[in-house]
Amino acid sequence: MSTSPETAVPAEETAGHGDISVGVKGSANSGEATASATRITPGNALRPEDIALAVSRGTAKPGEDVAEFALRLGDDALVLAQRLGHWISRAPELEEDIALGNIALDQLGHARSFLSYAGGFDGRSEDDLAYFRREPEFRSVEIFELPNGDFAVTIARQFVVSYYQFELYRRLAQSTDATLAGIAAKAVKEVDYHRDHSAQWVLRLAQGTDESREKMIHGFKVIWPYVDELFRDDELTGRLSGSGAAVEPSSLRADFDRLTGEVLAEAELEVPRVQPAPGGGRKGLHSEHLGYLLAEMQVLAREYPGASW
């Protein structure tokens, strides 16, 4: 790229999140001193710390609905990061230790951004939300909470959630809420890679050996009952789509079905015929799995309440 970081940014990419005070719009005005090799576009530069800072300065403050929505997305990403983190040092190949670690790290970054923003509603930090809420206060849906299973189950989940998150973040990048738009604009680029990673593995496993094909089919069978919950609308998403801050989850379904369908067709796999599970995570009614995950994640922070790390 020959253009400078600022001029290289298309106008529509900066439009969404001009309110965040660090590393975003404004950086062109505040001079070249703030530009660096790691700040290629404002979207890339938006870090959780920037959001926490904007929240503490009062330049970004979510309303109750947006905060609840950010909490949902933050919890989904956090729980997934916690699950994927387990693969690091246990993956089938060194390259996958790195790939799954990278995806976990991306998800954790998204979680930190969404939670930092959500906490802005009532003055709680990302860590207050992650470590000091009880299970019913979490808002994640079940597919993220499911145990990793074998590599095929993990890939089946990755395939579903990365295609879902891509459609969601792609639209949220146009949100009328500048901060949601900023987080989504950064996240969608990363989730695009997650789609590529999972789709490649779906193809490899489905068309590799007889054993891997069987395991891939089984993986989708395990995961698919929890797909519907991702696309369920409720009163909150109704209000937010009305204001243009978010979209109805059901509106993502057609694109999700089409794009995942293309990969499944290439892999010669069928969408499993399974009954959908009712879910309930958005209301705090969680799977049996979440409690263990939280117990492990929260134990040290809760052993030393008030300590800083």
């Binding site: 990061a81 690091i88 790195i98 976990a104 790290l105 954790l108 970054g109 134990v299 040290l300 790390w309």
Partner: peptide, 22 residues
């Protein structure tokens, strides 16, 4: 990694262990 006491520390530790694989 699973018990890191803050999300920032968790992110740093994850990145570090990933570096080691690299």
């Amino acid at each position: 990694i699973s018990r890191a006491p803050s999300l920032k520390r968790k992110a740093i530790l994850m990145a570090k262990v990933q570096d080691e694989a690299g």
